[in-house]
Computed example of a mutant assay.
Amino acid sequence: MNKCVELQDLGNKDYKQSWDYQEQLFKGIVDTKIKNRREELQLPTNNYFLFVEHPHVYTLGKSGDLSNLLLDENQLKDKGATFYKINRGGDITYHGPGQIVGYPILDLENFFTDIHKYLRFLEEMIILTLEEYDLKAERSPGETGVWLDVGTPFARKICAMGVRASRWVTMHGFALNVNANLGYFDNIIPCGIRGKAVTSLNVELGVKEVSTAEVKEKLLKHFTILFEAEIKTIQI
């Protein structure tokens, strides 16, 4: 079992380019697993964790409803945004500047073979990180992601999640609003959930900007503990 995870910070990168890169890494792991099975080998499989920030983009999961995008093609152009239908779970979400997007591409057979546990661990990583900023974040029953003030009229989502898994290999992941322009969420029904707000860490803390480097450091700390992983940083 290889618990070493290669960390790559892609910086600001186009969504489609990042998606293609994820698919490349994902395929490499799956191909190794197929080779192992066919040839009765025990070659180790790699694990990756990508950090990235995307230009304005809306993505719709495979079970999503296109009507949750409230913009037409011309309005998207006016907003400087792009749109993609993609192969993760979940409905529609927004990615953009000021957001930390994380894509763990893991062979779960190196850790545990339980997708439910995997999602709960990703949520816990976010919850524990926000706790360090004195915010009480929670899960919302029946709704993925991480929320504040669950069960009240002021419930608001601070982190969206959507993953894909095949042969126990994961891709896609989470999007944590750190210094996000929340106005872009007004152009969608986020995750297909009506009547609930979206927030950002800087808004909750009442500051202009939060250090994304500091947040990433905290996320990785909790990821390492939860997954009992070893992080190896790869310079891009």
Results as ranks from 00 to 15, higher is better:
F83N: 08
I92M: 09
G61N: 03
Q99L: 08
E40C: 09
I92H: 06
K85P: 02
K27W: 08
T45N: 12
D72V: 08
Q42V: 05
R37Q: 14
Q99S: 08
F51Y: 13
Q99T: 00
H95L: 07
K27A: 13
D107N: 15
P97L: 10
S67C: 07
H54D: 04
T93A: 10
L76T: 09
R88G: 03
Y84R: 08
N46M: 11
Q75D: 12
Y103T: 10
E39N: 14
E73M: 02
T59V: 04
G102I: 01
I100N: 01
D91N: 13
E73P: 00
V101A: 04
K79E: 14
K79W: 04
L25M: 15
K35C: 09
F26H: 14
I105Y: 05
L70F: 00
V52Y: 03
Y48L: 02
L108K: 04
Y58S: 03
K33N: 10
N68Y: 05
L25T: 12
A81L: 01
Y103N: 09
Q24T: 12
L41R: 15
Y48I: 01
E73A: 14
F49K: 02
K79D: 00
I29T: 09
L108W: 07
R37Y: 13
K27G: 11
R38F: 10
K85R: 15
I100T: 03
R88E: 06
G89K: 13
D65C: 08
S67Y: 04
P104C: 10
G90Y: 11
Y84F: 15
K77H: 04
I34W: 07
E73W: 06
V101T: 11
G61F: 03
E53Y: 09
K85V: 14
D65Q: 14
N74M: 09
Q75R: 13
Q99I: 04
T93K: 11
G64V: 02
E39Y: 12
